[in-house]
Write a protein that binds this DNA or RNA. Structure first.
Ligand SMILES: [Mn+2]
Ligand SMILES: [Mn+2]
Ligand SMILES: [Zn+2]
Ligand SMILES: [Zn+2]
Lengths: 141, 141
DNA sequence: GATTAAATAAGAATTATTCCTATTTACAAG
DNA sequence: CTTGTAAATAGGAATAATTCTTATTTAATC
């Protein structure tokens, strides 16, 4: 898994400054390496340490980290968009625990199964996600 | 495919009133049987005929139609939630055209492929959607 | 036609996100 | 170490989607 040093390098390597607010945002994701976090969660933790950091800055920073592949977006239906520290660079999908919010990578991708069955439709993207309960949450009542 | 009469019956059968605004909302979906519509699109068409209908009413009506299985929610990532007239009662997924917005049913479901591979995780729900360009949109430049 | 619970309109309130702009800062060059 | 400069930020206003509140209206029943 990627570490803090590499994130700083990736930022600078792409020509971005390594600022205080950006470090705070990065730290939040490393503090919860498997959780799915809404921007407002990230903002709350950041402001816990530095109350004057603006929402706008956190939104922009998270978007930047997404562009750099440091965090991944997770598409829950209703709620606000969530993110987690990227679990890998290869293509993968996710198992999402509906109780504790843990997000685990799933290597299997169903795309090959379907590519022949959609004559005439040219696929450029897809989404596949599984929702349920992780081992730990099944055992705790 | 379901028709207007059946929708009215389903409403009344479940104890709901068949009101003017509800009829207008239903008509919008029948007028675009394959399109994906955001609530604001539905609202705009409804207000075209009856300008005083409130957003709240349209939101509540669409939610009700979803509960009754008349319309299906479609999960696009960023944008507002969208809906289309349900394309069937059996479990299925969707092909979504990124240009014209057409939404076509896909019978294949990848769930069986994965159920053995996720030891310890109990799946209760899943999402699978394909995005791309439909035949017509591929041919028009 | 009268009764009544359900539904609606209108506007306020919330929530997530983006925009605006004056000020600050990371970083590099001297 | 200073200084110059573009990039980044703070703070507050603006937008957009959705929900809430409450007084009024109405579909369905009697
Ligand atoms: Mn991942
Ligand atoms: Mn469908
Ligand atoms: Zn895939
Ligand atoms: Zn399925």
């Amino acid at each position: 898994m990627i570490d803090r040093e590499q994130v700083a390098k990736r930022l600078k390597g792409a020509g971005y400054k390594f600022t205080g607010p950006r470090r705070l945002v990065i730290d939040v994701f490393f503090r919860h390496p498997e959780a799915s976090l809404a921007v407002k969660d990230v903002l709350a933790e950041v402001q816990g340490e530095c109350p004057h950091v603006s929402p706008d800055t956190v939104y922009r920073t998270v978007a930047l980290l997404e562009k750099l592949g440091v965090v991944e977006p997770l598409d829950f239906s209703d709620e606000a968009k969530k993110y987690r520290l990227a679990c890998g660079t290869e293509h993968h999908h996710h198992l999402v625990c509906l109780r504790c919010g843990a997000v685990m990578p799933l290597q299997y991708c169903p795309l090959v199964e379907v590519e022949d069955g959609v004559e005439g439709f040219s696929i450029v993207d897809h989404r596949f996600e599984l929702y349920g309960y992780c081992k730990a949450c099944q055992q705790t009542p």
